[in-house]
Design a binder for these strands. Structure first.
Length: 557
RNA sequence: GUGACCGUAGCUCAGUUGGUUAGAGCGCUGCCUUGUGGUGGCAGAUGUCGGGGGUUCGAAUCCCCUCGGUCACCCCA
């Protein structure tokens, strides 16, 4: 009997593991900060809904017609359900169900979400069967300034994570009445030139003429270029509204490109629609985020007519854009303390938890490994200090605290004083940086396509950032700051500072410089007369002296 | 749904017209190092060669099927 072959994740899905998952964590934290600062509350809706929720959202779209994962459950009669292919419909359904603006009618209902969506598609670059979106919805106002707020939030988020080469496309579709009035005009035009259209577009002329404008078929392009423009058949009111949106973007220094053919794939959009393109993504799927106004959607889903606007941005695609631009390279968070117990593991067990309860990150090995092996693990963890516990220490009621990032100095501390001792030393900005080799060795290999560059922001930033940013991040859990825990280096720090584009570009320049340094380091690693190795040897002999001193042996003997 | 390319160790990849026991680098484990990390040296472990079937004295290599990956069309975040 042969062993069954190991099961794999389904086609088009991926496991997300450390250390790669770290950027996802950071992306989420950063987005949450932006959303919260703008007054958006976190919402979670079911991953599956009644099929009807999505059908009413857009019956003519491929997303609903061909790409939905739908299924019947075991109830009698069975519910016909579907995995959500996008985020907005569920949120609007929740809005209809709970009517949150009843309690607070003067303000729109503002929510943000993060989670997986599912579409049955052929996977390729930037396209998966399970993919993840961050998004916001602002429901209950048709003020054009809300459109500006929504677009600005996404723009600022992209800037904050370091993206610079992003293009914003915007268009207006007018009211649903204007849209309905425009459709026959467009349809008539398209009928006249139907023979010039690609076959698949010809079918859409009768069912969804607007979607023909969105077609990327080469044959259809000349016909689309000459097509009547939605903007030309708008009412003065709608035009004025759109002017207000454009003026708002201008006032906030958000550059945009008017794209009259931007229709978007979902049927529910009215007035403002927009799309963000990652310019550096060398792939077919370069839209990293998109959204628009959907003033008719609440009603379509059986609720009161309520205006709304929102966006969704694909996490996988945002990260793809980051790779392409070489930004948002989040470093691994090093441990603060590593416990080396060479007795029987009892102290490692108890001390680790004691430190963690005090807010200090602490790791250990298991399975009773040799001291040497435990020290190697301590080194790999990037810990600032090793707590050494052997028979001597146990007998004296003490522990040995060894500095792993500096000269390797170690000192005995009474076991009862350990927490306070560590708090003091971890809070000290001169307490030693993160060892270079830690970042060099743990940095993820560049995943960007050849020709693009990934500046290793980690190595350059980590030494300073890890220690210096002591102001509590508003997103982090409570208690860290009191515990003297250094903030995690990374974009979440930046996000609280409200960086404007100039500042971001400044950071990028320094990151580019760091790249040069780092390449030099790597080249040196290959040399036999490696200066780094000499340095290490020097440090090692220094440490040896410390040890001898500690053991009361003649230091230089 | 259509098409192209790919699948060898944890990772990145060699593997000749089919030919002995499938390799390298990195990583991992141990030792040099008396309870003490990085550098160095030595030693070691690890493989359903994606899976199944076929051709052959002999298959990682050739053929068929299948699964998966990647990319493109289309669609979309």
């Amino acid at each position: 009997m042969s062993k069954a072959s190991p099961l794999k994740a389904p086609q088009g899905t991926h496991d997300l593991l450390p250390p790669d998952s770290r950027r996802w964590e950071q992306l989420l934290v950063c987005f949450a900060a932006h959303a919260r600062r703008a007054g958006y509350g976190f919402i979670q809706t079911p991953t599956f809904e009644d099929l009807a929720v999505f059908q009413r959202m857009g019956e003519g779209t491929d997303v609903v017609r061909k790409e939905m994962y739908d299924f019947k459950d075991r109830s009698d009669p069975p519910h016909h359900l579907a995995l959500r292919p996008e985020g907005t419909a569920g949120v609007v359904r929740a809005f209809n169900q709970h009517r949150p603006t009843k309690a607070n009618p003067q303000a729109p209902w503002k929510t943000w979400y993060a989670g997986p969506n599912f579409r049955y598609e052929a996977p390729q670059k930037g396209r998966f069967r399970q993919f993840h979106q961050l998004g916001i919805e602002c429901i209950g106002t048709d003020d054009p300034d809300a459109d500006v707020e929504v677009i600005a939030l996404l723009w600022d988020f992209y800037r904050d994570i370091g993206l610079k080469h992003v293009t914003l496309l915007i268009n207006t579709m007018g009211t649903s009445e204007e849209r309905n009035a425009f459709q026959p005009v467009l349809q008539e035009y398209l009928r006249g030139r139907a023979s010039e259209l690609h076959e698949s577009d010809r079918e859409k002329v009768e069912s969804h003429p607007m979607r023909v404008l969105d077609s990327k078929r080469r044959e259809s392009k000349p016909v689309i270029a000459d097509a009547p423009k939605m903007a030309d058949s708008l009412s003065a009111q709608s035009r004025e509204r759109f002017e207000r949106v454009k003026a708002g973007l201008g006032a906030l220094e958000i550059p945009f490109v008017l794209e009259p053919k931007l229709v978007r794939g979902l049927d529910y959009y009215t007035h403002t629609t927009f799309e963000f393109i990652g310019d550096e993504i060398g792939a077919a799927q370069s839209t990293i985020g998109a959204g628009g106004r959907y003033d008719g959607l609440a009603e379509d889903l059986g609720g009161e007519p309520t205006p709304g606007i929102g966006f969704a941005t694909g996490m996988e695609r945002v990260l793809l854009a980051c790779d392409a631009e070489g930004v948002f390279d989040t470093p691994e968070a090093p441990m603060e303390v590593f416990i080396v117990d060479v007795v029987d593991g009892t102290r490692a067990r108890d001390t680790a938890q004691q430190l963690r309860r005090a807010g200090i990150s602490a790791e250990r090995t298991f399975d009773g490994r040799s001291m040497r092996s435990q020290m190697k693990a301590a080194d790999r963890s990037g810990a600032a200090f090793a707590i050494l516990i052997g028979d001597d220490e146990v007998e004296a009621g003490e522990v040995t605290v060894r500095d792993l990032r500096g000269a390797g100095v170690q000192q005995r501390v009474a076991a009862g004083d350990l927490v306070n001792h560590l708090r003091e030393r971890l809070a000290d900005p001169d307490g030693g940086g993160v060892p270079d080799h830690f970042y060099v060795e743990n940095r993820r290999p560049a995943q960007s396509p050849p020709g693009t560059e990934v500046p290793p922001a980690s190595a350059a930033d980590a030494d300073t950032d890890t220690r210096s940013s002591s102001d509590a991040d508003d997103v982090d859990a409570d208690g860290k700051a009191e515990a003297g825990k250094p903030d995690t280096p990374g974009p979440s720090d930046r996000s609280t500072e409200g960086d404007m584009p100039e500042a971001t570009s400044g950071e990028n320049e320094s990151a580019t410089e760091a790249k040069g340094d780092d390449e030099a380091d790597e080249a040196e690693d290959d040399e036999t007369a490696d200066p780094e190795a000499v340095l290490h040897r020097a440090k090692a002999s220094e440490r040896l002296r410390d040890i001898r001193r500690a053991l009361d042996i003649d230091p230089d003997g």
